[in-house]
Design a protein around this nucleic acid. Structure first.
Length: 203
DNA sequence: AAATTGTCCAACCGCCTAGGG
DNA sequence: TCCCTAGGCGGTTGGACAATT
């Protein structure tokens, strides 16, 4: 059986986008808005897969994107959110206005991981490297190794439909040893206006 | 100056889920 | 209820550029 390809690959361009392609995409979305990515390339006169158009728009062309270096405040927020959500980059991005999941993912892999390691912190478990390697009490497994609560092994993290409720619940789990931080996190886990996800942007 | 190695990030791939018929 | 499709996500790749030898 197998899946049908998302587009006619023989008739689509791949690789880096040209300025002309970018302009076509921008013009089309300004006129018609986002949506119906599958038919967009044809309608916009682009020889691209719909997925590719969507990605290009979301990660690079959206006018509300910040670009530029991450601030120290953003970095610390990403670390906090990652400790709660794991590799749920789109959720993390939803709480950093002007940042994309791809951008955050790249920044995490190239900068933050190294930063945490240099602090002696395991980037996955967010525990000191020595402590994260050993689970001393199986009864308190979750508390000892929070990764078991929010890693890609748990339901919320793999469903792709993680909600703010999940975030709160995971926050409860993660801070089961230290409730003092939870309230602070709930208040501060969004930068800027606190409007949440930026994905509903319509030009 | 040229070759090699390392880093960064845009883009692609494949899988999953929601929603409609 | 099942099947199909489109949209969305996370992981990975590859090319451009920078730093080093």
């Amino acid at each position: 059986m197998g899946r049908s390809p998302c587009c006619e690959k023989a008739h689509t361009n791949k690789g880096a986008w040209t300025k002309e392609e970018d302009q076509h995409l921008i013009d089309y979305i300004r006129k018609h808005g986002e949506g119906c990515w599958r038919s967009l390339p044809k309608a916009a006169g682009l020889l691209r897969c719909g997925k590719s158009c969507r990605l290009r728009w979301i990660n690079y062309l959206r006018p509300d994107l910040k670009r530029g270096n991450f601030t120290e405040e953003e970095v610390e927020l990403i670390i906090k959110l990652h400790s709660l959500l794991g590799n749920k980059w789109s959720l993390i991005a939803g709480r950093l206005p002007g940042r994309t999941d791809n951008e955050i993912k790249n920044y995490w892999n190239t900068h933050i991981k190294r930063k945490l390691l240099s602090r002696g912190i395991d980037p996955q478990s967010h525990r000191p490297i020595n402590a994260s390697a050993v689970v001393t009490d199986p009864k308190n497994n979750a508390a000892v190794n929070p990764k078991t609560e929010y890693s890609s092994d748990n339901g919320a993290a793999t469903s792709g439909t993680t909600t703010d409720e999940d975030l709160r619940q995971n926050g409860d789990c993660y801070h089961s040893n230290d409730n003092s931080g939870l309230e602070e996190l709930n208040l501060e886990l969004t930068l800027g206006s606190g409007s949440g996800s930026q994905r509903s942007f319509v030009p």
